[in-house]
Design a protein around this nucleic acid. Sequence first.
DNA 1: TTGTACGCGTTATCAG
DNA 2: CTGATAACGCGTACAA
Lengths: 336, 336
Amino acid sequence: MARIKDVAKEANVSIATVSRVINNIPLVNEDTRLKVLAAIEKTGYRPNAVARSLKLQKSNTIGIIINDITRPIMTNAIRGIQEELSKNGYSAIISYTKGEKNAENEALDMFFLRQCDGIILIGTNIDEKTVSVINENKLPVISCLVIHDDKTLPGVGFDEFESSRIVTEYLIENGHSDIGAFMGNSPFHFVPPRIRGFFDVMRKKDLRLNENWIIRNSMTFNGGYECADQLLRLPRNFLPTAIFCFNDDMAVGAIKCFHEHGIKVPDDISVISINGSDFANWNMISITSLKFDSYSCGKRCAEIMYDMVTTGEIPPSVEYIPVHIEEGSTVKNIKK
Amino acid sequence: MARIKDVAKEANVSIATVSRVINNIPLVNEDTRLKVLAAIEKTGYRPNAVARSLKLQKSNTIGIIINDITRPIMTNAIRGIQEELSKNGYSAIISYTKGEKNAENEALDMFFLRQCDGIILIGTNIDEKTVSVINENKLPVISCLVIHDDKTLPGVGFDEFESSRIVTEYLIENGHSDIGAFMGNSPFHFVPPRIRGFFDVMRKKDLRLNENWIIRNSMTFNGGYECADQLLRLPRNFLPTAIFCFNDDMAVGAIKCFHEHGIKVPDDISVISINGSDFANWNMISITSLKFDSYSCGKRCAEIMYDMVTTGEIPPSVEYIPVHIEEGSTVKNIKK
DNA sequence: TTGTACGCGTTATCAG
DNA sequence: CTGATAACGCGTACAA
């Protein structure tokens, strides 16, 4: 690989001049500029990013911590981040941590060693200690998709509480009053506000909260399946008319279980979910769900991160992205 | 951030000694070793990976090019790669290229600038020119998931031809002889061998190939849906008894279309697919499909890459990972 | 066993 | 406008 020195020799100038040409510093004669350009072309020279990083104390690299890389919502966010970063000449170093503290710390350590200029957390559940570690190293951080409840961390995501309210109200608008919920039991930041949102609407509308209809389990396909299974132990005439699932996976699992028990969705029971990724539609029936654009969310995160690393300023707290209900065929209007 | 120099001063030794301690070079007195260790502890020193990279001409970084980051099969591979790499102190720089030549070239360029030690292509369709560019830069490359047909590139994947044969034979074993195929029309390396595998078995078993049953479309949910839609323009008594879909997405789309037209799977028509990711089961009915472990595939790729970067040797061509048919409930045994 | 000093490839400061 | 030259932080001959 040709070095700057080789170019200088080729062009009969000093390395300083070559450097000026490369970095578009205007104080250089047009003739010599062209000469240098030709030499660069001839030698096939490409500046060494590592050396540049060392000198500039800046790696143009952003560390990404993600704990579940397999969900479409996450990967779309990564996609948005990476595309936006690369526009500005930044690269993404990715680390999959499964939410394990240990792996998280190793990842952070690695990011510091590699002189990352900032850190993006995707859908992660990082605690205050970890955040303070990052802050000690004076690195900008931003959380993508998950907004920390205390808003202590800058982030781009959606308003969990409000979204949960929207979903619940949507069911009510469709004539439902006997509403159950399959809630996540994971210790994620976003679970509590979703729970509060649901309860908030139910109480304000004076609707009965039946504790048999509120079931917690893991936010997975199997979790949803088990919730439905548990619900179906109730006598058939004691079932709710609609179920609010905390995510797609649960909804799909629940629907499968209902189907196996001969309960028809949405004729016998309606189902709605949050987080509608594309595969909410990749089903024999499309799931009605609250959707948002996680690609844009990632993109916006990367934009803010770019601002942070270039200006050195921390933006004020939190940004919300819009959400909307995308109607599938799993919610029946039972208004008479 | 403390530098090696600070540690040296703190421990009253030279930076050379500190360096030796850090790198576990044995020629150092135990006493001074402890002294240095204490100084490292006290100063909170962490070696600067950028400076080290510059000096050693080695970044401990692997570039990953992926063109579709949203499919579970891909993300599981990434997961395997990243976990394995980080075991050996390597990091993954990821670049999402959508299969666009332009983006690919930019990504490669970036990898060279950043002095990546190797490049892993995930499910990508890179051509010979691109490979030769990589080879010029003397970087080890390996292809993950997709084996190049001419085996010109080292890779870990599965035998497309053989897999396609297995799927077709499975249908035949289940009594099917009127078999259709929804094939991908994408210009991917893996499409032709799958086509050949299907034809190979059909011919050897002397089964009729009905051109109305062989439909090509994009390998997506919509593609599968459209294939089924097209098939259903045939009179009902001219339909095949089974369909071989080239991937899950197509299968799910096809099943949805069949369902909407009142055609029951598997009673009226059987469906099988290749590439069974988990969400083949996240459906009201589980799809019978040929599965393989893309996580291990990624992991194995990373292992080989590690060997390549440490030994400098290129391994002999291609490794196959095992595949198996995972039975769901979309194939009916119609043997009498 | 330890220390000195050079170089990895850049950028930036200062003279000229 | 251009050219030496000193950093950036580290590893390693070579010398002691």
